[in-house]
Nucleic acid binder design. Sequence first.
DNA 1: ACCGGCGCTGAGAGTCACCTGAGCGGCTGC
DNA 2: GCAGCCGCTCAGGTGACTCTCAGCGCCGGT
Lengths: 220, 220
Amino acid sequence: MVDDEEHLAAAIADGLVAEGFDVDVEHNGNDGLWRAREGSYDAIVLDVLLPGIHGYKVCRTLRDEGNWTPILILTAKDGEYDEAEALDTGADDFLSKPFSFVVLLARIRALIRRGAPPRPTVMTCGTLELDPGTRRAKRGDADVKLTAREFALLEFLMRKDGNVASKPEILDHVWGIDFAGDPNVVEVYVGYLRKKIDAPFGLETLQTVRGAGYRLEPDA
Amino acid sequence: MVDDEEHLAAAIADGLVAEGFDVDVEHNGNDGLWRAREGSYDAIVLDVLLPGIHGYKVCRTLRDEGNWTPILILTAKDGEYDEAEALDTGADDFLSKPFSFVVLLARIRALIRRGAPPRPTVMTCGTLELDPGTRRAKRGDADVKLTAREFALLEFLMRKDGNVASKPEILDHVWGIDFAGDPNVVEVYVGYLRKKIDAPFGLETLQTVRGAGYRLEPDA
DNA sequence: ACCGGCGCTGAGAGTCACCTGAGCGGCTGC
DNA sequence: GCAGCCGCTCAGGTGACTCTCAGCGCCGGT
């Protein structure tokens, strides 16, 4: 992980460690490049705006040197750089700040999966299946099509494993800690999810716990 | 970080920030307690000698409230308090002043790595079960539906483990110290609880101790 | 037995949390 | 450039929940 915003980098690193990854952090382009050359990493998360060398330059340099470690580029949302440019330099994936941790996690998994032998990453809750690697969801044998946000929300709820997730907690993790909009989005998206994973099957696994949050229950 | 020596607190906070941590500082027990309740922190560094509430008291209070955020207690080296006492209150680690910053850092890292100690999430009292994680309550095999307030009250009574909870105490913990309404609510909600956890089963486990408060007794 | 106080309860009102449908801007694919 | 999807906001509606109030019963003391 190469990012000069130390708070953010530390927070993400912690989160990744909690998910079972082994993470090294650097805060500028030179050190990042050096690390990437030395170590053999499964993936690199790289901010574009870095002291020292620019992120794109790091990426380009590694590729020129024959290093094809999967790279995920982070950019500021309204920045002057766009996805095309990032991918031009040889990056494998692209994410703009602010982003939700769950999305980052899913993309990192996808990157590693692409570069390494596939691992079973699928989560289940009753007849509900969710594969963060392929970004697919199923209820029983039926495919369920989810949008990115719906997927992130469902993934977060499944990760909770039956425990109640409070609304602020959901906002922090699925929409990002810097989300400033209407907290009502959570209710709206819970509604969307119910229409896709419960209603068509006559189930009610996504329960609201009034005054506390939401809970995902396995169906019989 | 809760420490009334402002220089020291600021120095340590700076050091931690430089290491990539995100730090909030408070200088007295009350504010520290309030912060700890509000925010979701990875760890708390807590001095024992504090204006307002004593550090041990803060620690104990958080634990009583079900908050198991890792806590590292700081004490004066030759003080009257010892490690056993600190750990008794529910602290996870212990460090006496003066200490080296590197040691503090290492311990904080260890605490966070370890995470919140795996605690038995489900509480019982006779045939009564209550799970704060899933927010579910059961009497024997029967599910009991509780509202948020009822749940909080029952949780508080169960945590008392058979001891009497006084009405003011209940008001402070279940309704909050800033509750200004009619203290009669407690009686009302005790009534609600009895109708849900006792009456349908012919029990009388939620007993009133006239002039003292209420007590939750295990059934046979 | 009487009386004061503490606790209990039913009714009711106000508030709050949640759900939903409509709609809008932005992005994507055609 | 247009159609469609996605993400989000907003406002209205509804039912659940919380709390107040007032009257009454019960307990304990004299």
